[in-house]
Amino acid sequence: MVTKTEERELNQLENQVENGGGGVWEYLCLVRKLKVRRSELVLKHGLFILNDSGKRSALGPDEWTLYEQVAIAAMDCQSLAVAQNCIKVLQKKFPESKRVGKLEALLLEAKGMWEEAEKAYSILLEDNPLDQVIHKRKVAMAKAQGKPSLAIEHLNKYLEVFMADHDAWRELAEIYVSLQMYKQAAFCYEELILSNPTLPLYHLAYAEVLYTIGGHENLIAARKYYASTIDLTGGKSTRALFGICLCGSAIAQLSRGRNKEDKDVAAPELQSLAASALEKEYKQKAPAKLSLLSSALRSMKL
């Protein structure tokens, strides 16, 4: 996670670098440290240092780190020739290195040579079967080839060992949602909520999945999670406000035939409050679209 102060520092450095104020190496180091994706800038400025032999040798052993960084950035920008050159230099310096091997496999992947890349990765995996990066690359490759079910398979295998990796759970949840496998996605979102119970994003996503599955019980649960999202964001989440309204009307529709006691009585005002909060927000931020909102709310019988 990048904190606010780190982000400010990064942007400041970026401005300085862009305007030719120096500090390029510091900027590249910071990008590396924060693991942010600024591939174009890294490629541009990194290459500038690498092409200048005086500056390059001034870095000492960090020169090779820079080669690696530029190679990855170049692949991200599809400048495959640059990447190839960087990797070649590294290969010459570290002929047996696994880290360079990873870069080579990555290059194969970037070129779209899936089978070769797959082979390279499996050779690397034989050496270290617990390499998280390679497992994740395999998932990414399956996704890039348009084989989400294969990606799911890889992810499941990965999560069997690294089951506390919530980024992987999130990826899995998103793939499941894209395949409309909502029950499985719901499980993943539960896992994400467990890993970080106060992050409203996960509550919101879980509520949406529950709402999509439908059914009386799920709708009520979805309404609860929309409510928790509202609480956690302080009512700032427009999506959750809409969700509350939708849930309310869906529950009302479903329980029309039933007797009144069966109805969920917790916080009965929530729906109307959400609607008025929405109206207020639209009035403030997009008055032109207020009529659209009120007609939508009317169709939900609010």
Binding site: Y225, S228, I230, D231, A266, L273, A274
Partner: peptide
């Protein structure tokens, strides 16, 4: 814990409105 959140959300929204 979620049932409690509905009431809390209600009071949050009431304040907001």
């Amino acid at each position: 814990a979620l049932p409690r959140f509905e009431h809390r959300a209600e009071s949050v929204l009431r304040k907001l409105v």
